[in-house]
Nucleic acid binder design. Structure first.
Length: 574
DNA sequence: GCTATGGATAGCCTAGCATCCCAATGCTA
C-alpha cells in the first residue's frame, strides 16, 4: 500500500509550507495525510477503479492533491515535494523529533549552519554555534542538546507496558494523600496507546502545594523540570516524563477530557462545539462567557449531543459520529476475559510448572488456562517433539483430575505453539496436533520473504484442519523490528474462510494485531483471541494491554473468543 | 489547499508557555 508513503510526503510538505510561512495549506496537507494514514483502502486501487474523480472523494483531498497522488502512483515521485527537498534538504523526521524545534527553526538552522541531520545538529550545538542565531539563545541551545539525548536514547516513545505500572503506582500513592480529592491518569496512557510519550496525571486538590512537594520528591524522580501550584513536571528513572496538574473541581471533567486527547479527537469536538455556537477548552464548554458543562466528562459530551466515549476510542476514527448516533460499540471489558490460551510452561522456555500456572490463572479468576508450549523446531526455546508433548499431556490430564477431585471448576487445556515453516507446513505431525485441545501456529523463522510468499505461507497453515489460531500475525516487535511483509487483508479473508482465529498478542513488545488491524478483522467477521504469551506467571497480567488494544480496535465481547464460556470457545475451534 | 455555500468567496481548533527581546513568535499539548 502506498497510502503511508504518500501520507509521509504530505506531512513533510506541510512542514515545508510551514517553513515558508504559508497560511492554512499546512493544515490542509496534514489533514489529508491523516486521512490517508487511516484509510482502509489502497489509494492505488481507488485510483485504478475510479481515476482522479475517485481520489477527490477522499475527505481532505481536492483537485491539487489528487493530481499529486496520481503523479506519485505513476512516477513514484511528486515534483512539488522534490523541489522543496532540493532547496531545503533537511532530514525532517530527525530534526523535528527534537523537542523544541519546529519547521521555522529547522529552516533557520539549515540556512545559517547547513544543519540537515541529527548529527549535524548535535555538532553545532556542542560547538555553540546555535546560541548566537537570531531567535535562539544559550538556553535553547542547551535544551536542544538535552532533547537530542532523549531522542537518541528512546526515540522518544515508551511501551505502554513499561509505563502503565509506574503510572498506576504513582497515582495510587498520590490518591492516599489527604489533600488529594481525586486523581486520574489522562493522556495516551488512559487511551491505552501501544507506545507513550509521557504520563499526564490530573488531580483535584484544595491544597496543591503539599501534593506537588510529594510528587517531585517521589523516589522514582530523577529530575524536576518545574514545580508550580497548577503544574509540575518531572523526569522518571526509566526515562519518561510525568506531569501532574491540579485542576479546580468545577472544571475537572473538561480538563480530563482535554488532557486525555487525542489531539485529533479534541479538534473534532471543538468543531462540533463551534457549530453549536459554543467554545470548548480545557476549562469547559462555554456559550460566550456562560458555562454550559465542565464538571464531568459525561456532561461535556452530553452537551455536545454525544454519548460518553470510552478513552480507547478517542482517535477521531468515527467514534464521534457513532456517539452522535447513539451507536457506540459495547466494548469488551477488562473483566470479560475467562482464560488465557497462550502460556508457556517449564516444559519448554517458560519459568513455571503447569501446576503453578494453573494456580496463578485461578487466582486471576479465570475458568481455564491453555498451555501452549513451543514445538520442536524452536530449539532455542527447547521446543517439544511429539513424544514429549504426549508426556506433557499426561501430566495435564493428571492435574485436571486433581482439580476435579478437589471440587474446582477449572480446566487446563492442552495446546502448543507450533511453527509455520517456510512452505506453510507445521513442524510436528498432524497426529500430534490432533491430540491437542487447541493449536496456535506462528512464524518464528525466515522473516524476510516477499509479501506474496509470506502471505501464502501463513494461509497454507490456516488450511491445516488442526490449526485453530494464528499467533502474533504480523511478527512486529515494537521499537525493534517492523512487521514482516505480509498482506493482512488476504490473511483476514483466509481466516474468515477457514474459521481460523487471529491472536491479539498482549505481550507489551508485540501488541500484535494492532488496533487498526483488529478493527479490520472485526469488520470482516473474523474471531479474535487475546493471549499474553506469558513465559512467567507475573506476565499473565499483560492481558490488560491486549484488552486495551482490542478496545481501541472497537472489539466487543462476541468478537473475542476467550471472553466466552469455555465450552462455546472450544466449539469455535476447529 | 480544501470545504461549504452558492457559483466566487470565506473560513480553517485553542491556550499557555518559553524564549527572546521587551511585543512577538514558535512550539507543544
Amino acid at each position: 500500500m502506498k497510502n503511508q508513503e504518500i501520507a509521509r510526503i504530505f506531512n513533510e510538505l506541510a512542514e515545508y509550507l510551514e517553513m515558508e510561512g504559508v497560511a492554512f495549506k499546512p493544515y490542509a496537507y496534514q489533514k489529508a495525510a491523516l486521512t490517508l494514514e487511516n484509510l482502509k483502502d489502497d489509494v492505488a486501487a481507488i485510483y485504478q477503479q475510479g481515476g482522479l474523480k475517485a481520489l477527490k472523494k477522499i475527505p481532505g483531498v481536492g483537485e491539487s492533491m489528487a493530481l499529486k497522488i496520481e503523479e506519485y502512483l505513476k512516477t513514484g515521485k511528486i515534483q512539488y515535494y522534490e523541489e522543496f527537498k532540493q532547496r531545503l534538504p533537511i532530514e525532517l523526521n530527525e530534526i523535528m523529533a527534537v523537542e523544541g524545534l519546529g519547521p521555522k527553526k529547522a529552516k533557520i538552522l539549515y540556512e545559517h549552519l547547513g544543519i540537515r541531520t541529527l548529527a549535524d545538529l548535535e555538532a553545532a550545538a556542542q560547538a555553540h554555534q546555535i546560541a548566537p542565531l537570531f531567535g535562539f539563545g544559550a538556553k535553547t541551545e542547551a535544551n536542544i542538546l538535552e532533547a537530542i539525548e532523549f531522542v537518541k536514547r528512546s526515540k522518544g516513545r515508551f511501551l505502554l507496558g513499561e509505563i502503565l505500572p509506574l503510572a498506576e503506582a504513582v497515582r495510587d500513592r498520590l490518591s492516599r494523600l489527604p489533600e488529594v480529592e481525586q486523581i486520574n491518569i489522562a493522556g495516551s496512557v488512559r487511551r491505552m496507546k501501544e507506545t507513550i510519550g509521557d504520563v499526564d496525571l490530573l488531580a483535584i486538590s484544595r491544597a496543591p502545594d503539599p501534593v506537588m512537594d510529594f510528587f517531585v520528591s517521589l523516589p522514582e524522580v530523577v529530575r524536576v523540570w518545574g514545580q508550580g501550584h497548577t503544574k509540575s513536571s518531572v523526569r522518571t528513572k526509566p526515562g519518561f516524563d510525568m506531569d501532574l496538574r491540579v485542576i479546580p473541581a468545577p472544571s475537572y471533567g473538561a480538563a480530563l477530557q482535554y488532557f486525555t486527547g487525542s489531539k485529533e479527537h479534541n479538534i473534532a469536538l471543538r468543531k462540533i462545539a463551534i457549530d453549536l455556537g459554543y467554545k470548548l477548552s480545557e476549562y469547559g464548554l462555554f456559550k460566550g462567557s456562560e458555562i454550559i458543562a465542565a464538571v464531568s466528562e459525561e456532561a461535556v459530551y452530553q452537551a455536545l449531543g454525544l454519548q460518553w466515549i470510552p478513552p480507547e476510542l478517542r482517535e477521531d476514527r468515527g467514534e464521534i459520529e457513532a456517539a452522535a448516533a447513539g451507536k457506540l460499540p459495547k466494548l469488551i471489558d477488562y473483566t470479560d476475559i475467562r482464560g488465557d490460551l497462550h502460556v508457556h510452561s517449564n516444559w519448554n522456555g517458560g519459568a513455571h510448572s503447569i501446576a503453578d500456572i494453573a494456580a496463578a490463572a485461578r487466582q486471576l479468576g479465570y475458568d481455564y488456562v491453555g498451555i501452549a508450549d513451543h514445538t520442536k523446531f524452536l530449539r532455542i526455546e527447547r521446543g517439544l517433539d511429539e513424544a514429549t508433548l504426549e508426556k506433557r499431556n499426561q501430566e495435564i490430564d493428571r492435574l485436571n483430575q486433581q482439580l476435579k477431585d478437589s471440587g474446582h471448576d477449572f480446566t487446563i487445556l492442552k495446546g502448543c505453539e507450533a511453527n509455520i515453516m517456510a512452505d506453510g507446513s507445521i513442524d510436528i505431525t498432524d497426529e500430534s496436533l490432533a491430540q491437542q485441545d487447541f493449536v496456535i501456529a506462528g512464524v518464528h523463522s525466515q522473516f524476510k520473504m516477499t509479501p506474496e510468499q509470506m502471505t501464502e505461507r501463513v494461509i497454507t497453515a490456516m488450511h491445516n484442519p488442526h490449526v485453530d489460531i494464528i499467533a502474533h500475525p504480523t511478527g512486529r516487535i515494537l521499537k525493534k523490528r517492523t512487521e514482516y511483509e505480509i498482506n493482512l487483508d488476504q490473511l483476514i479473508q483466509a481466516a474468515q474462510a477457514t474459521g481460523t482465529v487471529l491472536e491479539i498478542n498482549a505481550y507489551p513488545e508485540r501488541l500484535d494485531l494492532d488496533d487498526l488491524n483488529i478493527l479490520k478483522a472485526k469488520q470482516a467477521g473474523v474471531k479474535l483471541i487475546i493471549n499474553t504469551d506469558a513465559h512467567h506467571i507475573d506476565q499473565l497480567r499483560y492481558m490488560k494491554y491486549g484488552i486495551g488494544q482490542a478496545r481501541r480496535g472497537w472489539a466487543e465481547k462476541p468478537d473475542i473468543i476467550n471472553a466466552w464460556p469455555v465450552a462455546e470457545m472450544l466449539k469455535m475451534l476447529k
